Amino acid sequence: MFHPLRVAEVRPLTDDAVTISFEVPEELRAAYHYAPGQHIAVRRREGGAEIRRTYSLCDPAPGPGEAGPRRLRVGVRLVEDGEFSTYALKELAAGDTLDVMTPAGRFVLEPRPGRYAAVVGGSGITPVLSQIATVLAREPRASFCLVRSDRTAASTMFLDEVADLKDRWPDRLHLVSALSREEQQAGLPSGRLDADRLTALLPALLPVPEVDGWFLCGPLGLVGAAERALRTLGVPRSRVHQEIFHVDEVPATPSGAAAAISGGGTVKATLDGRSGSWAARGGESVLETVLRNRSDAPYACKGGVCGTCRTRLVAGEVRMDRNFALEPEETEAGYVLACQSHPVTPVVEVDFDA
C-alpha cells in the first residue's frame, strides 16, 4: 500500500548518488516497520505516466517490539537515462512529497547468532548495510564478513558508514574492498571479482563451511559469479540469498518450453481478500490483466527483480519469462512473478494474499 510521505532530506553521497530520507507520520509508523534487507517502492507521475522504482532501506531496522521508524532512508544511484534517478539527483528536494509503498522483500537477515558473509557490488551495499548494522547491534554472538566491489573509491556508496561500523565492531566485522578501475593502497588488487577470483579469495578470508548465511547483492554479473564460486566451494543452496540489481541488459529467457496462449484466456485473482475474474488480452502478463481491473495490484520494477508482484499460482499454468527474485523453494511451492507470467492454459488463477 502506498502513502504520501514528505521528503525530509536529500543528501549527496557520491558524485552520482544521494540518500533520500522520508518522514513517517506517527499514525503510519507501524505500517512502515521493516526487517533488515527490505525495500520500498516510490511512485511519482510525470506527463501523465506513472513511474515506480524500488530502493532498499539502508538504516538499522527497528526491533520486533519497537514502534516503526520515524524516518525511512534509501540510497539512489544515477542510472543512465533513468527517469527517477535523474529526478532524484537533480530536482527532488526536502519538502517535496512522494508516494511510498510499505516495506517488502525477502532478502532479509533477522538478528541471530552465527557467522554471516556478503558479496556486494556498487549500490548492492544498501540492503546489506542495514543487515550488518542491525545484526551486529542486536546480536553480540554474530559476526560478518563483507566483500565489496566498486569502480573507484570516489564512487563507493556509504564508504564512511561502513568504516564507522568497522570501527565500532573491529573484531566482528571483517571488511575487504576491491576496486575494478583503480588501484588502492590497501585491500585487494584492482580488477573485477569473477568466479575464479572469488573461489580462491573466500576460503582465504573465512572458514566457508562455517558460514550460516551468504548474502549476494549487486549487478547480475557479480551475483552470478559469487553464486558459482560458492557452488564450487560446496556451499548448500539453502545458505545463499541473493538480490539482483541492474539486469536491463539481459534478454528475457522463458523458463520451460510452454508457449503462452495467443487468444488471451481468463485470469482469476485474489487480492486483499477480494476475488475477480477477467478476460486476458493476447500477450498480456498476469499482472497487466489484473492491473486493468484492479489498480491496487502490487508491483514495482516489472522486470522480474524486486519480487513485489509475487503471487501463488492456484490453478492453471503460466510461462515465466525471467526470475531474479524468487528462491527455488518459492517456485517449487507454486509462487510466480505476476509481471513475468503469461497464461499457458485457458484459465489461470493466482492468489496475491497467499
Rank of each mutant, 00 (worst) to 15 (best):
165 L>D: 01
281 R>Q: 15
89 L>C: 04
245 F>D: 02
4 P>K: 07
276 G>P: 04
316 G>P: 04
122 G>T: 03
263 G>Q: 09
220 L>M: 12
47 G>E: 13
95 G>W: 04
23 E>P: 05
285 S>G: 08
228 R>D: 11
296 D>E: 15
274 R>Q: 15
139 E>W: 06
194 D>M: 09
286 V>P: 00
122 G>C: 06
170 P>W: 08
99 D>M: 13
42 V>S: 03
295 S>F: 11
115 R>V: 05
161 E>C: 07
15 D>K: 09
237 R>V: 14
12 P>E: 08
341 S>K: 08
49 A>T: 15
90 K>E: 14
305 V>H: 02
188 L>T: 01
323 N>G: 08
341 S>T: 07
37 G>D: 04
33 H>M: 05
339 C>K: 02
278 W>V: 00
170 P>D: 13
322 R>N: 11
233 L>N: 00
115 R>W: 02
327 E>P: 07
331 T>F: 05
172 R>Q: 05
100 V>Q: 05
10 V>L: 10
318 V>Y: 09
329 E>V: 10
278 W>C: 05
39 H>Y: 15
106 R>L: 10
33 H>W: 13
286 V>M: 01
287 L>R: 03
44 R>N: 13
113 P>A: 15
218 G>L: 02
102 T>A: 14
38 Q>I: 02
215 F>T: 01
97 T>A: 12
153 A>Q: 15
237 R>Q: 14
32 Y>P: 01
149 S>Q: 11
